[in-house]
Design a protein around this nucleic acid. Structure first.
Lengths: 144, 144
DNA sequence: GTTATTGCAAACAATTTGCATATAA
DNA sequence: TTATATGCAAATTGTTTGCAATAAC
């Protein structure tokens, strides 16, 4: 997500939260604003650290509660890399999406998008005889 | 994996473990034997329960250590469904593999395989400019 | 005023680790 | 005999929850 998309995400999210009857409270707002600035994957701990650094409110409890809410509303995506920590990232409201490659050397996670892969996944529902509502692809790779 | 493939997995695993210089010890053997009987996803807790039920050795610590070893040797696959528990399953030594669909209604996880999807993933390495060493695909779906 | 939201601290659950003992090679 | 593997129990880690105080509407 580029700066524009992030801005759109922020507006969209605020609207959805308001629409859900939730209040514009300090803690959750700080979390949402923070996510609106980060398009890459962040852990709850990352968010906690950043908020503390900039003097924003947001206890651990609040951060987890906010992330849970955002996830339920489809505003963030939870990504379980398998190292025991959950990572989150904003969901582009335009529907664009990407997947992740875990680099075996560094452990870094980098996003990627691939049209052919999406095409293959699109056809899956019909081939399997079910309505596919979501998908995740995780690659493990090392630099060629 | 059918009964035949499971039997092959068991033999293969024992060979790989021996080849790695590891001993044929009671705890790890019980875990391997158990996995050789289960082709579907199991949690460490599942394994602990079954072993205890049948009077086999295998403490929590041993089970986790065995699973870690098997995972490092590529004999089992770790699957993080995102609910805080890791699930494991034997890796078919023939190279065949499948992915998983999480059914939204029941929460059940069922395996599936799809050639076109595999083809798309195969091409990914070149398109991304890296050597892809592994991949996982998780679908969320509901019955059509 | 009411009700959602917060922060703290305690509670939890899954997994990991230290260490003395047991055991395969 | 000697290094690996085990079991127990304690420690860690990420996440959740109870509850009284606080702030949004």
């Amino acid at each position: 997500m580029d700066a524009d998309a992030r801005e759109r995400w922020l507006e969209h999210s605020k609207a959805v939260l308001r629409g859900a009857g939730l209040r514009t409270s300090a803690g959750r707002t700080a979390v949402v604003d923070m996510l609106g600035r980060q398009s890459c994957l962040v852990t709850a701990q990352d968010i906690a650290d950043r908020l503390r650094d900039e003097g924003s409110p947001g206890s651990t409890a609040t951060i987890y509660r906010a992330l849970e809410t955002l996830h339920e509303l489809g505003l963030v995506r939870r990504f379980d890399s398998g190292e025991g920590v959950a990572r989150y990232e904003p969901v582009d409201p335009s529907g664009d999406h990407h997947h992740h490659v875990v680099l075996e050397d560094s452990g870094d996670v980098v996003p990627f998008a691939d049209a052919e892969l999406e095409r293959a996944i699109e056809g899956l529902g019909e081939r399997l005889g079910m309505r596919v509502t979501g998908h995740d692809v995780i690659l493990r790779a090392r630099r060629a």
